[in-house]
């Protein structure tokens, strides 16, 4: 049973007073048994003993538990699941130890892990917030850049467009009829990959993702299926593991 904080304190107070009263009566009995003193002294000893006992009991019951050090949890900002979902996170979290000069920051006591492990990005190339790196892989080069080539991985952007495939050497088609406003970069709605096989089926097109094997059709003028990028990019096919597992790099 979990009581609200105010109710809990009232219960503690009542129990404390009850224990204090029982203890006072017991003390009074013992006192009368062994000493014969005046009534006022007896009352004074009774009240003083009850007050001290009540105070001590109340302190013991309401004092905060002592702080204990716990291992820092997994870094929350990464979104990485802990435990079995991350079987490679088995290296124990240890305080950093450095071999550095005594006047070097590494030798300062601030190195101790007084707070959970965190992402630290004090670099100019990272975002100013310091929480996550800049998403450079989603950035487009400023000028003179070709669109992502067929061999580009999902999310990757080529800084300097250069298709290394043999088709690169064929002359580029004239672009006079190219309508950028109606162009659509085909992307697999299942895994987000751009490597697709396409064929014409009336009245639209049939696609097959060479990465995950997903097949779908699309007719011009209709919305492109919403892309839900799943994990397992580059790992086992989604068909094999249902999109829930991921090949880990190594053990």
């Amino acid at each position: 049973m979990v009581l609200p904080k105010d109710d809990k304190q009232q219960v503690i107070l009542l129990v404390t007073l009850l224990c204090g009263g029982v203890g006072s009566l017991l003390a009074f009995g013992l006192y009368r048994q062994f000493w014969h003193v005046g009534t006022w002294w007896t009352v004074l000893a009774l009240v003083a003993g009850a007050a001290v006992g009540t105070g001590l009991a109340f302190y013991v019951l309401t004092a905060e538990p002592r702080q204990t050090w716990q291992a820092p949890p997994s870094r929350p900002s990464t979104g990485r699941p802990a435990g079995p979902a991350n079987p490679y996170g088995v290296e124990a979290v240890q305080p950093p130890r450095h071999h550095a000069p005594a006047n070097h920051p590494a030798a300062m006591p601030a190195q101790q892990p007084t707070e959970p492990a965190k992402i630290v990005l004090p670099l100019a190339g990272a975002d100013a917030a310091g929480s996550l790196p800049r998403q450079w892989w989603n950035e487009r080069p400023p000028t003179g850049t070709a669109p992502p080539t067929g061999t580009a991985p999902p999310g990757a952007r080529q800084a300097k467009g250069r298709d290394l495939s043999p088709t690169r050497r064929t002359p580029a088609p004239p672009l006079s009829s190219y309508d950028a406003a109606s162009a659509l970069i085909a992307q697999c709605p299942r895994c987000g990959d751009f490597r697709l096989d396409v064929s014409t089926v009336s009245p639209g097109y049939a696609f097959r993702c060479t990465e995950c094997g997903n097949r779908w059709e699309w007719t011009p003028g209709t919305p492109w299926p919403s892309v839900v990028v799943r994990r397992n990019l580059g790992g086992r096919s989604v068909a094999e593991d249902g999109g829930t597992q991921q090949r880990e790099p190594w053990r």
């Binding site: 490679y88 088995v90 999310g155 580059g234 790992g235 880990e248 790099p249």
Partner: peptide, 16 residues
């Protein structure tokens, strides 16, 4: 010298 411990990072595995 060892095992990567942050894969997947931002839901993307090390090879990617």
């Amino acid at each position: 010298d060892g095992m990567v411990t942050d894969s997947p990072y931002q839901e993307v595995a090390l090879p990617d």
